[in-house]
């Protein structure tokens, strides 16, 4: 039975990584849209997002089947729950990829408007975080995963700066409000990509160390505040 479970687990591993590859590919193309928007690419991304949704359901089915059939424990159980959570995060990232692409195409109506370089920088960082969090899963590297969780603060700071900058620009040139709103939405979406990357990294820490680090800092502060 264990042999069969291991075979099923490696099949699941392969399936999840194939999904990772596809979602990473999608997010790269959608971020690329920010500098050169293209409706055709957006249409392709919408199509691919449907496939990703199916993939997510398939992986969850597979996980539930393994849980019911073999009733795994310890690391096997942690792996299956992690796969379920990572697949769900990836499905959300694919949705965000479509959203970024749509926002980028929204900028086509105002051709004189160009995307600020800080946004492309922020997008590159967020995508890199996502990529490295998947690397953590592959390498079972909880140390790197913890590092990625810390990087999210920098993305939040960039998000805040960009949002303030955009608000200021909206005040300065109200005629560009449409384009600036698209940009505003794109910034928020990219920030959420980084959040999902952080969630994946947190799941990896759980997979490797068996410790749930989500909200750990907040709980600690609360515990200290109420003796």
């Amino acid at each position: 039975m264990t042999v069969h479970m291991q075979l099923d687990l490696s099949e699941l591993h392969r399936e999840l990584l194939a999904m990772c590859t596809r979602v990473e590919d999608m997010i790269h193309r959608s971020v690329g849209q920010l500098s050169s928007p293209d409706f055709q690419v957006t249409r392709e991304l919408i199509q691919e997002d449907n496939e990703i949704d199916r993939w997510d359901v398939r992986i969850e089915d597979h996980c539930l089947k393994i849980l019911a059939l073999y009733q795994p424990v310890a690391v096997d159980l942690r792996r299956i729950t992690t796969v379920m959570k990572v697949a769900a995060e990836l499905e959300r990232v694919a949705d965000l990829a479509v959203s970024i692409s749509e926002r980028a195409c929204g900028l086509l109506n105002t051709p004189q408007f160009s995307v600020p370089s800080q946004l492309t920088e922020m997008a590159t960082r967020a995508v890199s975080m996502l990529h490295r969090s998947i690397d953590c899963y592959v390498d079972m590297d909880s140390q790197l995963a913890r590092q990625i969780c810390e990087e999210d603060d920098e993305i939040d700071r960039m998000n805040e700066e960009l949002i303030n900058d955009l608000i200021q620009r909206m005040h300065e040139s109200p005629d560009q409000i449409d384009a600036l709103l698209h940009l505003f939405s794109a910034v928020r979406t990219i920030e959420r990509v980084a959040d999902h990357a952080t969630n994946i990294a947190e799941d990896i820490v759980y997979l490797v160390e068996g410790k749930i680090i989500r909200h750990a800092g907040k709980f600690e502060r609360e515990d200290q505040a109420s003796p």
């Binding site: 392969r14 990584l17 194939a18 990772c20 590859t21 990473e24 590919d25 390498d139």
Partner: peptide, 15 residues
Amino acid sequence: KMIEGRHLWEVVRNT
């Protein structure tokens, strides 16, 4: 690091 004996689809993930 530690790439030998592992699948390329796992390590590199490039379509």
